[in-house]
Computed example of a mutant assay.
Amino acid sequence: MALERFEEQDFLACCGSTKFAKEMVLASPFTSLEEAIAAARNIWFNKVDVNGWLEAFSSHPQIGQSASSAHTSHTAAQWSKGEQSTALATSTGSSLQELSDWNAQYRQKFGFIFIICASGRSTAEILAELKKRYQNRPIVEFEIAAQEQMKVTELRLGKLFSTKTKPASTGKQHPTVLATKVEEDRVAVIGGHLKAAPNPSSDKASQVPTRTRPPITTHVLDVSRGCPATGVEVRLEMWKGSQPRPLFDKTDIGGWIFQGSSITDVDGRSGQLMSIVNDVNPGIYRISFNTGKYCPSGFFPFVSIVFEIKESQNREHFHVPLLLSPFSFSTYRGS
């Protein structure tokens, strides 16, 4: 097995605790991402003290704001920007102001900024979670923030390890710099600020890191209660009917082929609905939610969201969440 070697600055980009980064260097090299994550969990929860936790918290920008280069590396700043891309894409001026106001209240009460794994979460969802957690006792909230920090760390370790799968560059750039450029390009597309069209002759495969999660994911937010919807049954299917695509006025029995199912966890997130593959098969997919079982008094016995993945999108990630209330629902494409 190949041994993955990284420097202290690489681990600092994953978690802003100096103690964590030094301990990860001592524990390395790692034979796999899973081994690195196991070591990270042990170090974070058993070897890093309270000061180390607070140091890591302070390295994050406040949700809705950019990272300060004085307190975090360029790589970490770009990763943070990518992690908040869905929140920024779904925000409005008023929602950002409300988020800023609640962030200030949170910091005044607990003494540190609100920490949440923001990847794939909308501004409304983050704000709802902030308001919910604001009610916690400080000792309880400190533990929750540490758990959220570990989620962020695991996500970034996956990005760090993905740099090892990239073909060698003709330049002298550090591999984490290459990964940062890929993340920055992806965020630019989401934000609609891409300044130049990509070069058609470029090798797209070399621009995309190996996945660390399935290409299709979802979560459910109960907007009537302002919290994640736990215990919702979720089912993923792909269209394989006699027609190239499902038609509005015709039914093809057996046209939808089961891909996977799961139940949302305490964060409203589904488990793995399909295998982790670099190239997702293009086609039409359907995610169905057993909303009638979750909310028997609601208007919808179930909700299905149908969407299409084109050939040119087979290496992109598709996060298709459900924002649910008893008498309405909405969705959007997250990252």
Rank of each mutant, 00 (worst) to 15 (best):
N51K: 15
T72R: 12
A76V: 09
T75Q: 03
I43G: 00
F57M: 09
P29H: 13
A118S: 15
F6Q: 01
W102I: 07
E8L: 12
S91G: 06
R107M: 12
D10T: 01
T86P: 06
S122D: 02
K47A: 00
L99T: 09
V25L: 05
T18W: 07
N103F: 10
I63K: 09
K109W: 10
V25Y: 01
A21C: 03
K47L: 06
P29R: 15
A70H: 13
Q65E: 15
V25S: 00
S73Q: 03
W102T: 04
S66Y: 08
A27H: 10
C15P: 07
E55S: 03
W44Q: 05
A39H: 11
A87H: 11
E35T: 13
E55H: 08
W79Q: 06
T86K: 06
A56I: 06
G52C: 04
N51V: 05
S91W: 11
S17E: 01
E55C: 07
Q105A: 03
T18A: 02
C14R: 08
T18F: 04
T92L: 07
L96N: 10
G16D: 00
C15H: 13
S122W: 14
N103Y: 11
L33H: 08
I63A: 07
T86Q: 10
A87C: 14
G120C: 03
G82C: 04
A67Y: 09
H71G: 00
E8W: 10
E83Y: 10
Q108P: 01
